[in-house]
Write a protein that binds this DNA or RNA. Structure first.
Lengths: 189, 189
DNA sequence: AGGATTCTAGAATCCACATTCTAATACTGG
DNA sequence: CCAGTATTAGAATGTGGATTCTAGAATCCT
């Protein structure tokens, strides 16, 4: 059934991720992408209807992978593990981490494709649900504090290292742990 | 001497800041800026040699103002005040805060003008010096921990609110305070 | 082999923006 | 009033980059 493909969706997304890691998502022009793959631009459009759709796909894949471990840790009632998931994931997936944590969605995907709206909402709800479920199980715990301790603080701890292109050192885990313990009384987390 | 100016540098920078606050720095096109001011694009170029120079100016002004209070607090040996400077400044300068905290310099100014290189370095050194001087005065305090507590954590605390276009609520001050105390033993801060 | 189908190729088109250019204006000092 | 100058005015130019279009190639099925 048809000529064999030289460039799969995965190839293209992988190349886009590489370029992003090196020079930021703004550098992912269709021409640059084609050049890196040795492909004509036409082939890119054969797989992805538009640049936005391509980058949106890349974004969603990343969020899905990143979020899974976080949500599981919270479901297992381990807030500290959830908080430490961020630095650990940054170490195991440096390129993806740079994409997700150093840029806002809107800065990567100019306008989010309608088609993927529900997908994005689903992921977002998955996250907020995990947080509010956890909070519901721990009556003394303010949801805002929980989000701060498990999401915002780890993000902050890791950010300056990602910016510098470094892998976050082990010391950030200690900083996060100390902060978590201070914010979430052990009886609750 | 010469025709009176209708559009000063300050007018232009103010308009740029407005547009940024509403739609992000990417929306600050020379055309959009001209439209908002009711000016011809020629007048913009009469004041600023290029778009990058204009945005770089906006950025530097913002950093200078923001950083002053922070550095002063550290010089006064008050790490908590330094940490709380961020949420407070976000409340008093919401538009500027959005510009500085929601975007990286490189995302605002495509390539930083040579002319302003020294200026930027000066500001950066001012910040790192303030931090290392403080750390030097408190032998038990790890510089990395200090930066985390006074820079990264406040940034993280404020970020989700800036993203939502809200003014950071007072509760973030409490979160920051708790975290600071946990990270910096009171004997040192 | 012939037709259908799925891709590769890459040139051509289009558009948004930064930047430049040429005139026209409104002041000042003499 | 005239020359000089800083500035407004806005049209014209140029470029980077997304998208589209037209061909040509490689495979499968019958």
């Amino acid at each position: 059934m048809g000529r064999p493909a030289k460039f799969t969706r995965e190839d293209i997304l992988a190349a886009a991720l590489e370029i992003t890691a090196e020079s930021g998502p703004g550098a992912v022009t269709m021409a640059a992408l084609a050049a890196r793959l040795g492909a004509p631009t036409g082939s890119l459009y054969h797989r992805f209807a538009s640049r936005d759709l391509l980058l949106a796909d890349l974004w969603i894949h990343g969020v899905r992978r990143f979020q899974r471990g976080f949500v599981e840790a919270l479901a297992a009632d381990d807030a500290l593990a959830a908080a430490l998931h961020t630095p650990r994931w940054c170490r195991s997936h440096p390129a993806r981490a740079r994409l997700l944590l150093l840029h806002r969605r809107q800065d990567v995907v100019a306008d989010w494709p309608e088609r993927l709206g529900p997908e994005a909402e689903l992921l977002e709800r998955e996250l907020t649900d995990a947080l509010s479920d956890f909070a519901a199980r721990h009556p003394g715990l303010d949801p805002e504090t929980l989000a701060f301790a498990t999401v915002d603080v780890p993000y902050a701890a890791v950010r300056r290292h990602l910016l510098a292109g470094r892998r976050p050192p082990e010391t950030v885990d200690e900083l996060i742990t100390t902060t978590c313990h201070a914010l979430i009384p052990p009886s609750q987390g």
